[in-house]
Design a protein around this nucleic acid. Structure first.
Lengths: 194, 194
DNA sequence: CGGATTTATTAAACTACCTTAAGAAATCAC
DNA sequence: GTGATTTCTTAAGGTAGTTTAATAAATCCG
């Protein structure tokens, strides 16, 4: 079975033959999760690479003080997962949770390796994917080290209006590296200003 | 010509035939820079992808207030460059400067595309490279949003003892996202404690 | 070597952001 | 729909980190 919406998305990055698409869809499994379900638990081994077909996922990291830090949100047509755990077989340091009812494709490590090894096109696809992701990670680091909380929030709100509506503020605060109380105060200040 | 130290390094990530190595070394050019020379200027188009054979490079970003923010240090056998500029042909937002006498390989976009397109092995090499880089970028983001200045500094000092000696403190402070004055104070405090 | 320039230190005053705590609002579950 | 739970707001007090500015130390360069 070939899911056309996903096939279209893959083909935005690389040319894929019908045959290659078939291989891809043979190797992935479709799963559905209800809001608040956990897809990947902290400490889980063999954590998969996840393609979000529709919905929203949140990846967070729990520190020694049981404090949660949001690392990433994922929306439709995004890949997510604990890359380190996925690639090196280590236990996942993240938890991945559905923030809305979500449908995903699950790609296991073995299948990923097979795709990449047997098909230059998929190797290329993931090269481009990681490369683009790197660019946005670098931009995020710049924001982290050079923006004030207000600038970080305004940038986030501008770049991710959908998430602003969907995600509880406290998680957005965590993603930005500030406290929910401070974000609340910022929003009040910004609202008044207008 | 094949530079064996570099060939060995490439082969750590992927199998490369003699022929493929020859192609690689035909496409790159070796350049040397003296300490403090600029390799890539802010605004420069067609900024290359750079492999550091020996030496040290620093990548920084200059904001609207002419304030410099250090994004990355690079040592022997590291790739560096403004990926966004390299991939999308946009002007570089970074400046890249030699922090010591440095010998590099320069890979132009056209050559990179050729390597990736013609040789699955190089496509794979860069896929793995970007993938590993992503993992460390994610770890850095975690540190950014969840560590205190002291924790960030201690982690840096532990992970990069060579850079600690080589790089002026003010740049390390910038890399960590704190002021040089505060780093100085931190170091004094930490030194006393021992 | 010696003067010029860059880098590091120190300290005092300041501020962005955090902590705590309590109440209000929204959402969830039955 | 109503009680329980989670999320958001507000405010007071605290602290980590900044700013400014002046001095000291290190490095560069002719």
């Amino acid at each position: 079975m070939i899911l056309e919406d996903i096939a279209d998305n893959l083909r935005q990055y690389v040319n894929l033959s019908k045959e290659e698409l078939r291989v891809f869809f043979d190797l992935v499994t479709v799963k559905r999760f209800k809001k608040n379900e956990i897809l990947v638990h902290k400490g889980q081994e063999n954590s998969p690479f996840i393609f979000i077909r529709k919905g929203c996922l949140m990846t967070f990291f729990t520190d020694e003080k049981e404090f949660k830090h949001v690392i990433q949100f994922g929306l439709d047509k995004w890949w997510t997962g604990d890359l380190n755990s996925f690639m090196n077989g280590e236990p996942s340091i993240y938890t991945i949770k559905a923030m809305a009812d979500t449908e995903v494709l699950i790609l296991e490590k073995k299948s990923f390796e097979q795709l990449c090894q047997d098909h230059h096109a998929f190797e290329r696809y993931f090269r481009v994917l990681f490369q683009n992701s790197l660019v946005s990670h670098q931009k995020r680091i710049i924001r982290n080290i050079s923006f004030s909380a207000e600038e970080k929030y305004l940038t986030f709100a501008k770049n991710h209006p959908k998430l602003e509506l969907l995600i509880p503020q406290k998680y957005i605060a965590s993603y930005l590296g500030i406290t929910p109380e401070f974000l609340s105060m910022l929003r009040r200040k910004l609202a008044k200003r207008k």
